[in-house]
């Protein structure tokens, strides 16, 4: 597999470590009324799509960037690769 790193270009997936669903970026607010339920869903509930899947990969043997990779689970086609930090900010995560 090849991951087309947004800054470095195509790199062998052997340089990367997989984590899981990109929804892990959206960590709930610990002070929410139903924080325990929210954390439960955040940690354990996943969609398992036959098709496009957004997932987190770490460029461990590279620039140490976390990436959000959009991959089709049927074809393995990778349609988009973004810096996870940019994605996190676009989701309103900050400090």
């Amino acid at each position: 597999m090849i991951i087309n790193h947004p800054l470095l270009g195509p790199r062998d997936s052997a340089e990367f470590t997989y984590l899981g669903d990109a929804s892990l970026i959206e960590r709930p607010d610990w002070q929410a009324e139903d924080a325990a339920d929210q954390f439960h869903d955040y940690l354990y509930l996943r969609d398992n799509p036959a098709g496009e899947h957004r997932e987190l990969w770490f460029h461990e043997q590279g620039d140490r960037s976390w990436l959000v990779v959009t991959r089709n689970t049927l074809t393995h086609e990778i349609t988009k690769v973004e810096l996870a930090r940019d994605v996190a900010r676009s989701l309103g995560r900050s400090r």
Binding site: L8, R11, A14, E15, Q61, G62, D63
Partner: peptide, 10 residues
């Protein structure tokens, strides 16, 4: 410049 792994080593 590039960082990669060769024979499992950084």
């Amino acid at each position: 410049v590039a960082r990669t792994a060769m024979e499992h080593m950084a």
